[in-house]
Amino acid sequence: MIDALISFVNENLGVLFVIAIFPGLAFILGFVIFAVWYQRKYLARLMIRMGPVHCGGRMGWLQLIADAMKLVAKELIFPRAANKTLFLFASVVLPVIPAAMIALIPFAPGLIIYDAAGVSLLVFFAISTLFPVVSVIRGWAANNKFTIIGAFRNIYLDIAGEIPVFLASVGVMIWAGTYDLNEIVLKQASMWFIVPQFLGFIVFFIGFLAMIEKVPFDIPTAETELIYGPNTEYSGAMFLNMMEADYINLLAWTLLMITLYFGGYNGPPIFADPVLNGVFWILLKLIIAITIIFTITISYARLRIDQAVKMGWNYLLPLSILNILLTLAMKFYLGGV
């Protein structure tokens, strides 16, 4: 039995490494810890304060481990009127959905968890539609007024944001002539798609902020109105799962943005160096991207739900359709890549 297991591990060492270490489970959890720490320290600087300093020296790097241990050690509290099965189910399943989306992202030539046979971009969007469904389940199961309001806001926002995002990436699909994320990265070796798809990128970025539910689109979890939106009733390790789901969602969509518009694991085209192509560049781009996102989160006020939905349907949707038409015209006259 053990011999069979050892031989199985030896035979599939590469696959197991990709799933469990990088870019799989360990990387995703490590990113969550890093992102929360980085957000705290970086935003603290912008707010004229220090951030965590007590745990792990001046940089406070142990603070997140301490917080996670505290949350795991706490009692799991189920509201008396809640549907306990669904309540627990949602908290377990929600972080898995964005993690499954990350499986489709290429991190280096050949370094990809699941190669979806040439349609990985479509699979990415297919999986992402599960997120609001589980979100509604968590809001409904908690049987609380704040959670149910937050859950319905989540549906409104996701529909208003996801359709423009999808249509903007249709522009990339047409320009690149493929549904495959790896192919899209390879076609950006000479020029990143942000240049020919600039209008599409603007639409994508605004919709993207709605998808990751950060300010100015943190409408479902609006803290000043709904406490913590659909997550209000969660405690202990379930709350930790919800936090993780938020940050894994951020990671998945940021990686998609980098892959579609900023050359994925390619270095900048002028310095195209085969040694450096790969993991280094995608991680560097990831850090720059989350720095910009965190800066946006403290620079703006939150939109109201009606303003956000109006922005999605009245401005982003027509612009994304215009972008598709422009891309078709450019492809017809210039010949694409």
Binding site: L43, L46, M47, V215, D218, I298, Y300, A301
Partner: peptide, 9 residues
Amino acid sequence: SESAAWNPA
């Protein structure tokens, strides 16, 4: 400002 968003800055 904090009530218009959770914007503690």
